[in-house]
């Protein structure tokens, strides 16, 4: 067999392996970016969604016994109730822009599985 063809064949093997792993990895781990406006029009979701918005500081409630954090996410005129079952992260009080990943439940609350906000390095922006 030609050396070049053999080399190309050999190279396809690892690429196929990677493609297979990546394809398996895509299941259940993809989160789709939506805007609050789009989510406001939804009934509920089966997909994992990611939303960006501002925390309405007045709406933040934390019940440490559960622990349960709830707040309203706002983006322009849209508003969505968000609940997060987990320990209140230290830097949440300074968080303004947050990204939440999760699903919309039947009561139209957004149940967060992953809560992200600008990290310390961007602290200076939170003036």
């Amino acid at each position: 067999m030609n050396k070049k063809i053999r080399f190309l064949l050999l190279m396809t093997l690892p690429i196929l392996l990677l493609a297979f792993l990546a394809y398996k990895g895509l299941e259940n781990s993809a989160a789709y970016y939506y805007t609050l406006a789009e989510v406001s029009a939804m009934e509920s979701s089966n997909q994992k969604l990611r939303l960006k918005g501002k925390v309405d500081q007045g709406s933040v409630e934390y019940i440490p016994e559960v622990p349960l954090l709830s707040f309203a996410l706002i983006d322009g005129e849209h508003r969505l109730d968000v609940i997060y079952e987990g320990v209140l992260p230290d830097n949440f009080s300074h968080a303004q822009e947050v990204i939440v990943e999760g699903q919309l439940n039947q009561n139209r609350e957004f149940v967060v599985s992953k809560l992200m906000f600008q990290c310390p390095s961007k602290y200076e922006e939170g003036e």
């Binding site: 792993l21 398996k24 993809a30 789709y32």
Partner: peptide
């Protein structure tokens, strides 16, 4: 826009 979480990376 789609973001991938830890599941993807661990799988790969």
């Amino acid at each position: 826009e789609i973001a991938l979480d830890q599941g993807y990376y661990n799988q790969v």
